[in-house]
């Protein structure tokens, strides 16, 4: 479904992604862990098409679509969803109006505003947000936790093929984590969907059963494995893990000068 091959990018003159390879099939839940600055968030931004990042090499396909050839909104319409760590508030624009406009843009048929609103209300309940968030100005005066929950509800409403969730669990309390895990299970139950979760290895991952775990360092996925890799990383930490990898000669781990 999502196929990333040898993806390189720069931010200004600085190389960030240095050859990312990743394949996500329908039904798979991938977790990417890594130290701050290892390139996890950049990967999401590059997949969306943030103009601040320049792709210098590599290919990305989502289904039949050559993702890198598309504008950001076309990538979203093709089924790619990125959650924002700090989504912006937009004056006077409600969540339902923004998301309905997006759903309508992705659909060739008319999307009923009334029905969409009702569904969004249900998704908000799933992530433990009040239904008033349907009509409230999007992200205005909302806490970090509320914003991230609304991002997940947005994902449920837009039904993407591939959701890339960037630290959606930070700043969310334990009840919220349970709700988010429910939301992610509900999303995957929709069928034909894939999930990439970027996290610092926090509590959300305890409630999910990732099919794949990747360690990111210096712009590459340097180690991949099943859920047990998560436990090893948790015990050893990234720095030790990176050292161990280098000693074993795995990956081409580079350190910034």
């Amino acid at each position: 479904m999502l196929q990333i091959e040898d993806l390189h990018s720069r931010l200004g003159e600085t190389p960030i992604l240095r050859g990312v390879n990743l394949r996500v099939l329908a039904g798979e839940v991938h977790v990417i862990v890594g130290a701050n600055g290892s390139g996890k968030s950049t990967l999401g931004r590059v997949l969306l098409g943030d103009e601040q990042h320049t792709v210098t090499q590599g290919t990305v396909t989502l289904g039949d679509a050559d993702l890198l050839a598309l504008e950001p909104h076309e990538r979203a319409q093709a089924g790619f969803f990125l959650s924002f760590q700090s989504p912006p508030a937009i004056d006077g624009v409600s969540a339902v109006d923004l998301l309905h406009a997006g759903a309508q843009a992705a659909s060739e048929e008319r999307v009923s505003h009334f029905r969409f609103k009702k569904q969004l209300g249900a998704h908000l309940r799933t992530v433990h947000l009040g239904e008033e968030f349907v009509n409230r100005e999007i992200h205005k005066g909302a806490s970090g936790g509320e914003r991230r929950k609304l991002e997940l509800a947005s994902m449920l409403a837009l039904e993407p093929k591939l959701a890339f969730l960037d630290e959606v669990d930070s700043g969310v309390d334990i009840d919220g984590i349970h709700a988010m895990a429910d939301a992610l299970r509900q999303y995957m139950a929709g069928g034909g969907r894939g999930l990439v979760i970027v996290s610092h290895g926090e509590r959300l991952l305890d409630h999910l059963a990732p099919t794949h775990v990747h360690v990111m360092a210096d712009g590459q996925l340097v180690e991949s494995g099943d859920a047990t890799l998560l436990q090893r990383v948790k015990q050893e930490g990234f720095a030790q893990r990176k050292g161990a990898l280098e000693r074993r000669g795995i990956g081409t781990v580079r350190t910034e000068a």
């Binding site: 076309e74 912006p88 937009i90 006077g92």
Partner: peptide, 30 residues
């Protein structure tokens, strides 16, 4: 209109023209 807001709208599927319309309507809503 900030680039980040336009990118956020794009991430929900809105092309820049539609996004600007939505943002302007919101700006005037009051």
């Amino acid at each position: 209109i900030s680039e980040e807001t336009l990118l956020y709208c794009a991430s929900r599927g809105l092309d820049p023209e539609v996004a600007k319309g939505v943002i302007v309507n919101g700006f005037l809503d009051e």
